[in-house]
């Protein structure tokens, strides 16, 4: 096969996909986020995304905080800087690992679930049925999920921050021999409000990405069970990649000031 044709096909596909996503984004924002609103749907989605993600988020954050404490301690002893453990755990969790890991875990859970649900609704004509019942699917399905994502992810990250720091504290005091009071003092003294808010801003953006990717791939799924399966995979992969990319952009922006 002609390699040029191959490259051309990939580029065209990429451009077409970008265009489709741009149109979807436009509809999601201009139709999905304008009245009328469906508060009931937003609440249902928040419970599904947030409450049901708590165990996953809690466990992830706890072990990450613990590992962070161990690693920093090992690195710190080489420079006689073991005392930094508490503050670096707090900084690492709030600025970076809390939002990113929570984002990735929720992307796996929620993007997939949204894509599977909307994809099934698409292939079984339920989305068409919504339209025939005078209900705009962008407003009824997409809007509430995006709003729920943007609200829920920061809430989850607050919890991840707390549990992550607690994980570090438990490892630090139980197995690394830190004094509990000193550990907490170091955590609180070096942590600034901006560390936390920058993490929460990231989380809101990640929530948006997760909901958008789930809805986009679900909405555009074609061709029965196989199509829904493909949509689910694509949603998780694209959400995860976009989260990591957005994380870099946001970090460089938030560091700038």
């Amino acid at each position: 096969m002609n390699p040029l044709a191959q490259i051309g096909r990939v580029v065209l596909h990429l451009l077409a996909e970008t265009g489709r996503l741009a149109f979807f984004l436009k509809n999601a924002l201009l139709i999905g986020l304008t009245p009328r609103w469906y508060p009931r749907q937003i609440l249902i989605q928040m419970i599904r995304m947030g409450y049901n993600s708590l165990p996953v988020i809690g466990l992830t954050a706890f072990f990450t905080g613990g590992v962070l404490a161990l690693q920093i301690y090992i690195g710190g002893t080489r420079f006689n800087a073991e005392s930094l453990v508490a503050s670096i755990v707090a900084l690492g969790i709030t600025r970076e690992l809390g939002p990113v890991l929570a984002g990735l875990m929720v992307a796996g859970r929620v993007s997939a679930a949204i894509a599977a649900e909307l994809g099934t609704m698409r292939v079984t004509e339920q989305i068409d049925a919504l339209v025939t019942l005078s209900t705009n699917p962008y407003r009824y399905l997409v809007g509430p999920r995006i709003v729920a994502g943007v609200i829920t992810l920061p809430l989850l990250v607050i919890i991840a921050d707390i549990i992550g720091i607690m994980g570090g504290y438990i490892v630090g005091t139980r197995s690394l021999g830190f004094n509990a009071g000193a550990y907490l003092k170091n955590t609180v003294d070096f942590l600034e409000m901006q560390d936390i808010t920058s993490g929460l801003i990231k989380a809101a953006v990640f929530g948006f990405i997760i909901a958008l990717m789930g809805c986009y791939h679900g909405f555009n799924s074609r061709g029965g069970a196989q199509g829904v399966g493909r949509a689910t995979t694509n949603a998780v992969v694209s959400a995860s990649i976009l989260i990591l990319a957005a994380n870099y952009v946001l970090t460089s922006l938030l560091f700038a000031d």
Partner: peptide, 20 residues
Amino acid sequence: RDRVMRKFGMLFQSAALFDS
């Protein structure tokens, strides 16, 4: 479109009931 859509009712092939 909404105004015209209210004139319509449609029965889909697979019924397309909202399963949630």
